[in-house]
Amino acid sequence: MNLSYAIAALRKRGFRFIYTYAKESLAFDLRHGTRTSARVPKESQSLTGSTQDAENGLLYVASFTSVTRNSVALAKRLLGEEQFRSFQFLDMGCGKGKALLVHALGNADHSIHPSIGIEYDPDLAKIANANIAKTSLDPEKVKVVVDSAVEFENFVSSDKLLIYLYNSFQGETLRAVLRKLKNYQHMLVYVDPAEKEVLHEFGYVIHQNVQGKYNADTWLLASMNIDNMNQQAAPTEVRAVA
């Protein structure tokens, strides 16, 4: 966390947020020697790809460790252990790779398919790959590619996907991705779901809707085209404990 952001966050949200951010973001980097926690505003990104992607993309913010773990664990409970192994993890707009790393450190050895991060900023993707190299993860099982999230079909090896999206893009880019995802059995973790109403338009089933204290711990889990799940594994709406 840079000093100017820390001061602004302290003035706006108080010491509790600083403590939460340290526990949920900085602690991960200290433990693994990675660089994921510092925010990257949109104006500081090296934007590539289409004009649409550049317009609809947002800043990079590291996922809270507990949010990634809890949301993926819930997906695992709903799908069951065996079916979960066949779902390929895809972090759309992965930035420096925080959520990708958290997932892979807990699940990569049990997954049939490699975990993939897609990032349209080559500088952020370079940092993400350097972060992967800092861990014990097999680079064949965890990869980051530079491209638009709309082009995700070029990189997946399964027709069953676990999508992780931390409000990385909105507008037509989001809709374009969701249109393509209709062809897959998939679960969607949507953190800071700024355009969650779009999911209803596309016919998603919402399994859990968590209202957190901050944007970073507000998330939902939805699915499409999946019938054999344990529907009793999660309430439809809960409030996160700060």
Results as ranks from 00 to 15, higher is better:
96 K>F: 08
90 L>T: 09
71 S>V: 05
213 K>M: 08
97 G>C: 02
169 F>H: 06
204 Y>N: 03
61 V>T: 10
50 S>K: 05
185 Q>E: 15
195 E>C: 04
34 T>K: 06
186 H>F: 08
169 F>M: 11
229 M>N: 02
126 K>I: 01
231 Q>A: 08
165 L>R: 01
84 F>C: 07
68 T>C: 11
30 L>M: 10
230 N>A: 09
6 A>D: 02
10 L>F: 13
11 R>I: 09
87 F>K: 08
182 K>M: 14
76 K>R: 15
38 A>T: 12
194 A>N: 00
178 L>M: 11
181 L>W: 03
41 P>F: 06
127 I>C: 07
11 R>D: 03
83 Q>A: 12
172 E>D: 15
74 L>T: 14
208 Q>G: 06
71 S>F: 06
180 K>W: 08
133 A>L: 14
190 Y>C: 10
109 D>Q: 12
166 Y>Q: 12
161 L>S: 00
20 T>S: 07
186 H>Q: 07
190 Y>K: 05
227 D>V: 10
156 V>T: 11
5 Y>S: 13
117 G>P: 06
34 T>I: 05
176 A>N: 13
212 G>P: 02
207 H>C: 07
14 G>P: 03
218 T>P: 00
149 A>T: 09
124 L>D: 05
18 I>L: 15
232 Q>M: 08
37 S>D: 12
209 N>S: 13
5 Y>G: 04
4 S>M: 08
181 L>Y: 05
24 E>N: 09
185 Q>C: 09
227 D>W: 02
191 V>E: 06
224 M>D: 01
20 T>C: 06
80 G>H: 05
198 V>K: 02
72 V>M: 07
222 A>F: 03
15 F>W: 03
200 H>V: 04
125 A>E: 07
15 F>A: 11
202 F>T: 11
172 E>M: 09
223 S>G: 01
177 V>E: 01
5 Y>W: 08
79 L>P: 09
61 V>F: 05
219 W>S: 00
223 S>V: 04
113 H>W: 14
70 N>H: 05
122 P>V: 12
132 I>A: 10
116 I>Y: 03
175 R>H: 02
157 S>W: 02
